[in-house]
């Protein structure tokens, strides 16, 4: 089973306002993904599409299955059933390294940085640039500055251990690392969970910058304010099932909350925009 490497992503900007049918195929799609841990059904028949130049927020209560979904998309978890497709081509994500190679970069909930390593070392961990047998520190350092500059991230020096950085700076390092190798899709699991107001704003800026650079972005979050600030689409997970897919510009806050908690005023309210796109989501 050698993963088929799909053709490079279309370069033209995907018009965010175009009707669904006219869009190019989603960069990353999940079809019918299910995953159980013993008796716990963490994901049940989940479909998801992520397009280029789009921020898809995945929201849901604790234990709704968000991190499990991230695991499936990042190659950490191989789902019990279901399909992952890159630009319409089915792929096997057997490990984080494979997902990475196929252009799916993940910023994990815990960032997956090594605190004792410096910024450059973390950015290139597992993808070090070499000159002959030895590491090319200079090339890596220059590239590190370039990546951080793209994100307008403020880091005092790229040669200090990550342990000495603030939470927001670490988040920036983790996001910069995700950008290495020009991924198609960047997945962020709870990127603002541990951050203060200023740093949250900085990270949300980074997320917008990722979208503006043409990446598909999956933003997992608890925080509705964050979601409303940057998301183009909001997908709700509830007890492992898809429970709504909203257009962030027009959806009503209460409808999303209702989908998260399981109350269903959205259907009686008659708000067209808040209508879940996946009928399957209503059966819960």
């Amino acid at each position: 089973m050698n993963p088929h490497v799909p053709s490079p992503r279309p370069t033209g900007p995907a018009p965010r306002t175009a009707p669904v049918s006219a869009r190019p195929p989603a960069v990353l799609s999940l079809r019918g993904v299910s995953q159980s841990f013993g008796a716990v059904r963490a994901l049940v028949d989940v479909d998801l599409d992520v397009h280029a130049r789009e921020v898809v927020a995945v929201v849901g209560d604790n234990g709704a299955g968000k991190s499990t979904l991230v695991g499936v998309m990042s190659g950490v978890t191989v789902p019990d059933s279901g399909e992952v497709m890159l630009e319409g081509v089915p792929v096997q994500l057997g490990s984080p390294a494979v997902a990475r190679q196929l252009g799916i970069a993940t910023v994990f909930q815990d960032l997956a940085l090594c605190a004792d390593l410096d910024v450059v070392e973390n950015l290139f961990l597992g993808h070090e640039v070499r000159r002959g047998p030895v590491l090319d520190e200079i090339a890596m350092e220059r590239e590190a500055w370039r990546l951080l500059a793209q994100l307008a991230a403020r880091v005092p020096s790229v040669r200090v251990p990550v342990a000495t950085l603030s939470g927001g700076q670490r988040q920036a390092v983790a996001i910069a690392r995700a950008l290495l190798g020009e991924p198609r899709v960047v997945i962020l699991d709870e990127p603002t969970a541990a951050l203060g107001v200023t740093q949250t704003a900085e990270v949300l800026n980074l997320v917008e910058r990722l979208r503006d650079r043409g990446h598909g972005v999956v933003l997992v979050s608890h925080n509705m304010a964050d979601v409303q600030a940057v998301a183009d689409r909001v997908v709700v997970l509830r007890r492992g099932r898809l429970n709504g897919d909203f257009d962030a510009d027009t959806a009503r806050y209460e409808d999303i909350i209702a989908a998260i908690t399981g109350a269903s005023p959205a259907l009686s309210g008659g708000s067209r925009a808040a209508q879940p796109r996946h009928p399957r989501g209503e059966t819960s």
Binding site: S95, P96, A97, L111, C114, L125, G126
Partner: peptide, 8 residues
């Protein structure tokens, strides 16, 4: 854990 997820 981070090292593993970095593909080492």
């Amino acid at each position: 854990d981070s090292a593993r997820r970095a593909g080492l």
